[in-house]
Design a protein around this nucleic acid. Structure first.
Length: 269
DNA sequence: ATCGGGACCTGCTTGC
DNA sequence: TGCAAGCAGGTCCCGA
């Protein structure tokens, strides 16, 4: 499901839902997600008031005075408020709030992560992450520096979370189409000016997608239950064989770095 | 160091 | 109708 816009949308939804909330009890249905959920997690969160919901890259951090819950949605992770009787397969964690509501983490494929953030804030999953794409550190100069000499396809590297975070398979394709760059271009040979354009396009598209509440592909929903709308703005993702919105040539699909990629052979160079 | 491929897991769609 | 294959928004690990 989630790239940066979706995670940011979930973050904002949780922030709204959980303002002033206190965790009364945590029930885990199973422990084996991408990494094991620590046994002590429920006890560490029980009785804690939620003070902030933050995001770093595609990770959510649910902060309390006593512990911070680190969460990654993987491909299919969702948070929802579920009243009694609303239990579903693949519900892995129930957060019972003091006001009687129940917040549920569900993740059918179990690529997601629930963990406790160490007291010093250092967590292996967060170590080595690149800059936020919407922050000041992500610039044409920066991209030119980190891509210098790299031969991997441009698309593969803008999806590399060590270089820049938050860009996944959808928004990489959309950004490359917007600046008319071929996703297979060896990253180190893209001109500096084109990299500046690419940075601007990534920022613009992520910003537009956040404003639209993310993209709902199969069953992504906000923590509040609403669908996103940015999927209606896709120019290439999921449109293989359909006409390019700019030149009407059929869009082609190739597997690049193991991920299917739709692009226009005529427009993107 | 870098790159490509596969593994992880379940559910849904497609094609025979 | 039924079944198998293929594919899915991410990350991690391995061998070359």
């Amino acid at each position: 499901m989630p790239e940066l816009p979706e995670v940011e949308t979930v973050r904002a939804g949780l922030e709204r839902l959980l303002a002033g909330a206190v965790i009364r009890r945590v029930d885990l249905q199973r422990h084996d997600l991408r990494a094991p959920i620590p046994q002590e997690l429920p006890a560490r969160l029980a009785g804690q008031p939620i003070t902030a919901i933050r995001r770093r890259a595609k990770y959510l951090l649910i902060e309390t005075p006593g512990a911070t819950l680190l969460c990654h949605l993987g491909m299919t992770g969702t948070w929802r408020v579920a009243p009694p009787g609303d239990e579903r397969t693949h519900d892995h964690a129930y957060l019972h709030l003091a006001d009687g509501r129940r917040l549920v983490f569900r993740d059918p494929r179990r690529f997601g992560l629930l963990d406790l953030l160490p007291a010093d804030g250092r967590h292996p999953a967060l170590a080595g992450l690149g800059p936020e794409p919407l922050g000041p550190a992500f610039s044409g100069d920066y991209l030119a520096t980190v891509l210098r000499g790299r031969k991997a396809p441009l698309k593969a590297l803008i999806m590399d979370q060590r270089l820049v975070v938050g860009v996944g398979n959808i928004y990489a394709q959309e950004a490359l189409f917007r600046v008319r760059l071929r996703p297979t271009r060896p990253a180190g040979r893209v001109p500096r000016a084109a990299l500046s354009d690419l940075v601007a396009a990534i920022r613009a598209i992520l910003g537009e997608a956040i404003a639209a509440g993310g993209s709902t592909i199969s069953d992504f929903h906000h923590a509040g239950g609403e669908a996103g709308w940015f999927q209606h703005s896709f120019q290439v993702y999921g449109r293989a064989g359909q006409p390019c919105s700019a030149c009407s040539a059929p869009l082609r699909s190739d597997v690049i770095a193991g991920r299917s990629t739709v692009w226009c052979r005529r427009c993107q160079r």
